[in-house]
């Protein structure tokens, strides 16, 4: 997972990606960065989010959070998709 961060633009965008997740109220400690990709002029960070609480221990529900940041002057997009493993 360290290889995408050899790209300087990925490194520059990463803090904003994390900030986008924080704006959704996400507990960052429960996220894992799964992939970084370049798609159509954007850098997209895909995180796996597994919220943990003692009430949810038996049924973990990971969700996929993708946040894309423009490499050009565009508004950022964040989407929330649920999936089950």
């Amino acid at each position: 997972m360290m290889i995408p961060f050899l790209d300087s633009e990925v490194r520059a965008k990463a803090p904003q990606a994390i900030e986008n997740l924080r704006k959704e109220g996400v507990w960052m400690v429960n996220t894992k960065l799964k992939s970084v990709s370049r798609e159509g002029g954007e850098i997209c960070f895909q995180f796996e989010h597994s919220y943990t609480s003692k009430f949810l221990r038996a049924v973990p529900r990971p969700s996929s959070l993708v946040t894309c940041l423009p490499t050009s002057d565009q508004r950022p997009v964040t989407s929330d998709t649920n999936y089950h493993e």
Binding site: E24, G25, W27, T52, S53
Partner: peptide, 26 residues
């Protein structure tokens, strides 16, 4: 539930609904 202030992890332990960290949210 959106928790305002400085929630520690113990809030997640005690509260049944999913806890969102309000201080950074829009």
């Amino acid at each position: 539930v959106i928790v305002m202030g400085h929630p520690g992890h113990h809030i997640r332990w005690y509260l049944e609904p999913r806890v969102l960290v309000g201080k950074n949210m829009d």
